[in-house]
């Protein structure tokens, strides 16, 4: 019983840490320009495919592929912002939101065109990384080396992000811009540049999540971004949209919740549980667990 609990907990944390990586992009972009970037799930999908191509076509090491996918999506995120959102900066928020949905549909269809509608397999983990082994930590409590790798990679990325946001010049400018856009500009901060940085960082984290999901579950598909994207969005809302620690916590909580739902036999409802959480949070505490009510002066 306890060992099963632990196994599900580890499954949940591994899954949840990928949600957290993706949720960070939603929350950071929302924090700065108040846009739900619905194309973010497709950036995650693109990262998964770019990693796959780098490994299978270009035969690079998985670590290089991982970094390559992050770099590719970093650039892609910045370009998407410049083309699809920046021209609408002064329009209504709904216009940018619709544009985001448009980009999302475009990207998943483009992936469908290039990779086809069938799932594509990632090479077996033992070929690109190491043979997956289970370790027994205590009395039947098992964890795999792959899970540890996924959790550790996510954790390292999140620690780097936290350090960056807290201590660097650009990180401070990002926080300032998210707290007060106009006043940040009055400080001499080039807010357009900060927005680009935000998309770059958020998109590269989504790509990291994409490659990790590819390795963990073994398959990638053109429409994988839709559902995972919505779940990561749920995670961001659960933690409090705009809050970085909130996105980390929300992602992991959602992953654990989902795995326990599966464990108690509700596996056909696992997606419903995620969206049930979304609805409950929006009804009961729309600012999420870590969110603060930001009063905007008009």
């Amino acid at each position: 019983m306890l060992s099963n609990f632990f196994v599900q907990l580890m499954n949940g944390i591994a899954l949840g840490s990928t949600y957290a990586l993706i949720a960070l992009g939603y929350t950071m972009v929302y924090g700065i320009i108040l846009l739900i970037n619905f194309a973010h799930g497709e950036i995650f999908m693109s990262g998964a495919f770019v990693g796959l191509i780098l490994v299978t076509v270009f035969h690079v090491h998985i670590i290089i592929a991982f970094l390559g996918a992050m770099l590719f999506c970093m650039i892609m995120g910045v370009i998407i912002e410049k083309i699809a959102y920046k021209p609408l900066r002064r329009s209504t928020r709904l216009a940018a939101l619709i544009s985001a949905i448009g980009v999302s549909i475009f990207l998943s269809n483009l992936a469908n065109l290039i990779f086809g509608a069938n799932p594509t397999s990632y090479p077996p983990t033992k070929e690109i990384l190491f043979p997956v082994k289970s370790f027994e930590l205590f009395a039947g409590a098992q964890v795999t080396n792959l899970q540890i790798l996924i959790i550790a990679t996510s954790a390292i990325l999140m620690i780097i992000l936290q350090y960056f946001i807290k201590n660097t010049r650009i990180g401070k400018a990002m926080r300032a811009t998210s707290q007060d856009y106009d006043t940040a500009a009055l400080m001499g901060i080039n807010v357009n540049k900060i927005i680009s940085y935000t998309f770059a960082i958020g998109s590269s984290l989504a790509a990291a999540g994409g490659v990790l999901v590819g390795i963990y579950f073994g398959v990638v598909k053109y429409n994988m971004g839709t559902l995972v994207g919505l779940k990561a969005f749920t995670a961001a809302v659960l933690g409090g949209i705009g809050s970085i620690p909130g996105a980390m916590f929300g992602g992991i909580a959602l992953g654990i919740g989902e795995m326990f739902a599966v464990a108690i036999g509700l596996s056909s409802y696992r997606d419903a549980i995620a969206f049930g959480i979304l609805i409950i949070v929006l009804l009961v505490k729309p600012t999420g667990l870590f969110g603060t009510e930001i009063q905007k002066k008009v």
């Binding site: 401070k172 926080r175 300032a176 707290q179 007060d180 106009d182 006043t183 940040a184 500009a185 009055l186 400080m187 001499g188 901060i189 080039n190 807010v191 357009n192 002066k297």
Partner: peptide, 28 residues
């Protein structure tokens, strides 16, 4: 000029209602 350029050439502003960054420290 965009706002950040205006600051660079030597004009800065104390905005109405103070507009300090509430979640950042005084030093920041």
């Amino acid at each position: 000029f965009p706002p950040h350029k205006v600051v660079e050439i030597g004009i800065s502003q104390v905005p109405e209602g103070r507009r300090v960054f509430p979640l950042m420290t005084v030093l920041e």
